[in-house]
Amino acid sequence: MFTDHIEEIRAAIAGHPAGKTFILSELLGDRWEVIGQDPRPQKVGEKFSEAVDKGMFPGVEFDHVQRSPRVSVYKKVR
């Protein structure tokens, strides 16, 4: 479940440089194979997007949707 991985995602974000964009699967690297399948990649992406909107990841904001593959891109602003 997404909530089981929030601290791990926060740690990955903390190691990402401010001002740079990221795609969740790329940010998590090899861990995406575990986290992204819980329960399926699209659902994890939706839950992350909702969590960003609710302020659960301070300093992270939605940036844009990449077209191919279609994924959300986020930016660490601080």
Rank of each mutant, 00 (worst) to 15 (best):
M1E: 12
M1K: 14
M1V: 01
M1C: 06
F2A: 05
F2W: 01
F2Y: 08
F2E: 04
T3R: 15
T3M: 08
T3Y: 11
T3I: 01
D4Y: 04
D4S: 13
D4L: 11
D4H: 10
H5E: 08
H5D: 12
I6R: 15
I6A: 09
I6S: 07
E7A: 13
E8Q: 15
E8C: 04
E8S: 11
I9T: 02
R10T: 00
R10W: 03
R10K: 15
A11Q: 09
A12S: 12
A12N: 04
I13S: 06
I13R: 13
H16D: 04
H16E: 05
H16I: 00
H16M: 03
H16G: 05
P17L: 02
A18Q: 07
A18Y: 01
G19A: 07
G19C: 05
G19R: 09
G19N: 09
G19P: 07
K20C: 03
K20H: 13
T21A: 10
T21Y: 05
F22I: 03
F22N: 10
F22A: 08
F22E: 08
L24M: 07
S25W: 01
S25G: 06
S25E: 14
L27I: 03
L27C: 03
L28D: 08
L28Q: 09
G29A: 02
G29E: 05
D30I: 00
D30N: 12
R31H: 08
W32T: 05
W32N: 10
V34S: 12
I35L: 07
I35R: 11
I35K: 12
G36A: 11
Q37G: 14
D38N: 14
D38L: 02
P39N: 04
R40K: 15
R40I: 02
R40H: 14
P41S: 09
P41N: 13
Q42W: 05
Q42F: 05
Q42M: 12
K43F: 06
K43P: 00
K43Q: 12
V44P: 05
V44G: 07
V44W: 08
K47Q: 13
K47E: 12
K47T: 00
F48Y: 08
S49R: 14
S49H: 15
E50Q: 15
A51C: 04
A51F: 08
A51Y: 10
V52F: 09
V52Q: 11
D53A: 14
D53M: 12
K54F: 07
G55L: 07
G55I: 01
G55F: 06
M56E: 15
M56H: 11
M56A: 10
M56C: 02
M56S: 11
M56Y: 08
F57P: 04
P58H: 04
P58I: 01
V60N: 08
E61K: 15
E61F: 01
F62R: 15
F62K: 14
F62A: 06
D63W: 13
D63N: 13
H64Y: 15
H64K: 15
H64S: 12
H64N: 10
H64V: 00
H64C: 06
V65G: 01
Q66A: 14
Q66P: 00
Q66F: 04
R67G: 09
S68I: 06
P69M: 13
P69T: 08
V71T: 12
S72L: 10
V73F: 06
V73T: 05
Y74D: 05
Y74Q: 08
K75D: 00
K75P: 01
V77M: 11
V77K: 15
V77Y: 09
V77D: 02
V77L: 09
R78V: 00
